[in-house]
Design a binder for these strands. Structure first.
Length: 234
DNA sequence: AACTGATGCAACCGCCTGCTG
DNA sequence: ACAGCAGGCGGTTGCATCAGT
């Protein structure tokens, strides 16, 4: 699903983010904000470039992100706005609170693009089309989306009806990049587990100074370099 | 069971824009 | 007006997983 972690020639880490890195980034941004993305990784004790940190935050760690399947309403909004603005994903994302431009872009390319080619709204309207693989796929994905949606509603206290405004307070899950233990779970299970994980993590995560098992490891915290930086004022 | 092609999505890259000195 | 820097955006890639054979 994601690139394997590696270090480039400048010693900058690339590829999938670890849970540890996510925690560091979240903790730092929550505490200090992000006045300067380029300096942030240095202060946060991350071996990443600022751009990578920003992307991770914007697309995955930011509060109030809405994850999971798209509702029919959201799908329609995407179609309409794409028709109107083209590939202006950030513009489209502005109209879908909780969704990121990257996510919408991915969704467009993987779900919507193929069904709209020459068949704007109802790809399954005519009989021939109904028999096509694409149509079957479309139906399948829609069914999947709906069942997953009801799952979501049942499992969280958050109401996501098509008329509901997007609920504040959604926290990100930690399910994507560190899949070693969660990879055996279904997506629904995954999301639930990650919320629980988040609860555990946050029980004293946000109130206590961030001290992990290797928090004093110099590999991660070059104390001599950043001893006076905000990170250590926690 | 093994293989293969398709799919989904996190992450990277390069370019553009806006701000500041 | 210009250069340098930082943030933002859209296109693309890499790879795990899924689905079909």
């Amino acid at each position: 699903m994601v690139r394997a972690p590696y270090f480039d020639k400048n010693g900058i880490k690339k590829g999938a983010w670890s849970e540890e890195e996510d925690k560091r980034l979240m903790a730092y941004v929550e505490r200090h904000g992000h006045p300067n993305w380029r300096q942030l990784p240095k202060f946060a004790g991350l071996q990443r470039c600022g751009k990578s940190c920003r992307l991770r935050w914007m697309n995955y760690l930011r509060p109030n992100l809405k994850r999971g399947n798209y509702t029919q309403k959201e799908e329609q909004i995407i179609k309409d706005l794409h028709k109107k603005h083209g590939n202006k994903w950030s513009l489209i994302a502005e109209n879908l609170p909780g969704r990121t431009d990257n996510e919408i872009k991915n969704y467009w390319h993987s779900h919507l693009k193929k069904f709209l080619k020459g068949n704007e709204n109802t790809p399954c309207d005519d009989d021939d089309e109904l028999k096509s693989t694409e149509c079957k796929e479309f139906e399948r994905s829609m069914n999947k989306a709906h069942s997953a949606d009801s799952h979501h509603i049942l499992e969280s206290s958050v109401s996501i009806s098509s008329e509901t405004s997007y609920t504040e307070g959604n926290s990100p899950s930690f399910s994507s990049s560190h899949t070693t233990e969660s990879s055996t779970l279904s997506k629904e299970e995954d999301s639930v587990v990650s919320w629980q994980t988040m609860d555990v993590l946050s029980s004293n995560f946000w109130t206590e100074p961030f001290i992990s098992e290797n928090a004093l490891n110099q590999d991660y915290f070059p104390i001599s370099s950043y001893g006076t930086e905000p990170f250590f004022l926690w």
